[in-house]
Design a protein around this nucleic acid. Structure first.
Lengths: 106, 106
DNA sequence: CAGTATCCCCCTAGATACTG
DNA sequence: CAGTATCTAGGGGGATACTG
């Protein structure tokens, strides 16, 4: 048969993946990071209507999941850059597929 | 450039797509419906550790988003079948990509 | 079998203000 | 510039019991 069945009672890969990128602003943030490294405020502008608190929170989760890299330059004023990690870059096909689907079917 | 930028302040396609499939049990439910039409309890077993209340709720949302079809046979005992709609079937590449990513990178 | 009906907790997420 | 700190509302989500 074409699709194998999974016992999701103790971890399903689809569920696991969505837990990583399904946060309210995570997908959009990751998507915009496909363009390249961005500073905090740049990313905030791109993501749009998000509060600082929430963006910071979601970025920290993405970081601790190893999907993005946060680089701090110890200067005044602060300079922080976000970029996709190797692992984060593997999400590219998914993010582009989500974008295309969103454009076509929503 | 490879990726166009989107103003997400009033609707971003990635965000829109994730709003449809990002619910806690939606991805898994959709994924299992790739296998074909299922009855309620069958789907519930497949999805795993979900309560009836939540599964019903998420299925109703998927239905009102036009991603799944709910067919009720007016018999006793009740018989209800769920299946992917045309639109829902367009999610197949995304669901498979999520599964593959989840298997490899989580 | 395939749901409702209740009750309730807690976490998500927003608003606002403050800061190294 | 890139964040904390604090407070708060709202609803997502669980447990349990009941039903046509």
């Amino acid at each position: 048969m074409r699709f194998e069945s999974y016992d999701c009672s103790r971890g399903c890969p689809v569920e696991a993946a969505l837990e990583r990128i399904g946060g309210k602003w995570k997908g959009v943030a990751l998507y915009h990071l496909l363009e390249g490294t961005k500073r905090y405020n740049e990313l905030k502008r791109d993501v749009g209507n998000v509060t600082q608190r929430m963006l910071t929170k979601q970025l920290r989760e993405l970081e601790s999941d190893g999907l993005i890299v946060r680089k701090v330059y110890p200067v005044v004023p602060p300079h922080v850059e976000y970029s996709l990690s190797e692992k984060g870059r593997t999400l590219e096909p998914i993010l582009l597929a989500l974008r295309d689907w969103g454009e076509s079917y929503v």
